[in-house]
Design a protein around this nucleic acid. Structure first.
Lengths: 162, 162
DNA sequence: CTTAGTGCAAAACATTTGCATTTAT
DNA sequence: ATAAATGCAAATGTTTTGCACTAAG
C-alpha cells in the first residue's frame, strides 16, 4: 500500500485525468510533507520549483485528489484547512491557547464512533474535524482546575494575537 | 444558573462594558435561539428590530461575550461558525454530505475525553467539539433516529471518509 | 466629560469560479 | 483533434479592522 508519486498520478489518469507538471509537483510535496499541510504552504512549495503555478490550480488538484480518496482535509478551527494523505488518517487535537496540533490515532476515538453510531445512526469520520482543548504544556502553566467551566480567555490565532 | 438577558448585560457592565441597544437585542436573540446560530442569522434577527445595527457590531459583541465565557463558538467545517450559550455545552455531529448538524450530549463523548486525557495529557474543550461524518439519511437509512437541528441546506461537498 | 461602543466602508483571509488559452493524450 | 487542465483576475463568503462619530456612564 505504498503511496508513491507515480501511483497517485496513475490513479488520476485511471480516472480520466491527465498528468501535468503542476500535478506531479503537488503530489510530490504532499508526500514529502508526511503530515498536515495547508494549501497555502503547498502553493509556496510548488511555486518554488514552478513559480507560475496558480493558487487556483492547487486548490483544483487538491479537490481532485480528495475526490479520488487519496487525501483528506481537516478544519483545525480558525485558520485554513490542512491536507494529508488519506492513508495517514488520524484525529487532530488543537490547543486553543497555543495553537499546537497533536495527531491522535483513530482507534482512540473508536468508542465514541460506535456509541454515536448506535445512538444517532451517524457514521463518524473523525479525521475531518479537529477537537479543541488545552494541551499539556498550556495546562501546566495555568491553574490545574481541569473541570473548568470558565471559558479560556485567549484564542490562538495564526498570525495575530487578539 | 438561569441565564437571562439582564444577567448577561450585568456581566458586561461588571467587566467595564456598557449596555447598549445592540447588546440587549443580540443577547435576547442568543437566548431565544437556544442552540447553535450563525453570526449571519443573529445579524438578520437583530436587524429585524433595529436595521442599522452593523455586522461588525454583532461580531464585536459576540467576541466580548465569548471572552466573558457567556457563549462559545464552534467551527462546523465549511460554512460560518456557530455560537451558543456556554451553559448548553454539547458536541456537534456534522454531516459531510448534506450539512445537517446534530447536537450530542456530552456524556456520550466522555470516553474520548478521558482517553485523550490519559494518552495525550490533552484536556478536550467540548465547546469546540465538532465531528464530521455521514448522517442516517445520507447513509441510506430510513429510521429517523436523530433529531436534526439544522436542515440540510444543500451545502455539501464530496468527501471520502478514509 | 470620557472613552467604550458604533456604523460604515474597506481590508483581510481562504477559497471558488469564469473564461480564454495551453497542453496531454 | 479534443477535452482536460491551467493562469489570471475577479467574485465569493466570512470575519476583522480603521476611523470618525455617537452615546453610556
Amino acid at each position: 500500500v505504498a503511496v508513491t508519486v507515480d501511483s497517485v498520478l496513475e490513479q488520476l489518469r485511471a480516472d480520466g485525468g491527465r498528468i501535468t507538471t503542476a500535478r506531479r509537483l503537488l503530489v510530490k510535496e504532499l508526500l514529502r510533507a508526511r503530515g498536515h499541510v495547508t494549501a497555502e504552504k503547498l502553493v509556496k512549495r510548488v511555486q518554488a520549483s514552478q513559480p507560475d503555478v496558480a493558487e487556483s490550480t492547487i486548490y483544483r488538484i487538491l479537490d481532485s485528489l480528495e475526490r479520488l480518496g487519496v487525501i483528506v482535509h481537516t478544519h483545525l478551527g480558525h485558520g485554513p484547512a490542512v491536507y494529508h494523505l488519506a492513508e495517514e488518517s488520524h484525529g487532530h487535537l488543537v490547543c486553543d491557547h497555543c495553537g499546537a496540533v497533536i495527531e491522535v490515532p483513530l482507534d482512540l476515538l473508536g468508542k465514541v464512533t460506535s456509541a454515536v453510531r448506535e445512538h444517532h445512526r451517524f457514521e463518524i469520520g473523525v479525521q475531518h474535524f479537529a477537537i479543541g482543548g488545552t494541551c499539556s504544556r498550556c495546562l501546566g502553566s495555568r491553574s490545574p482546575a481541569a473541570t473548568t467551566l470558565t471559558a479560556p480567555e485567549g484564542r490562538a490565532r495564526a498570525s495575530r494575537a487578539g
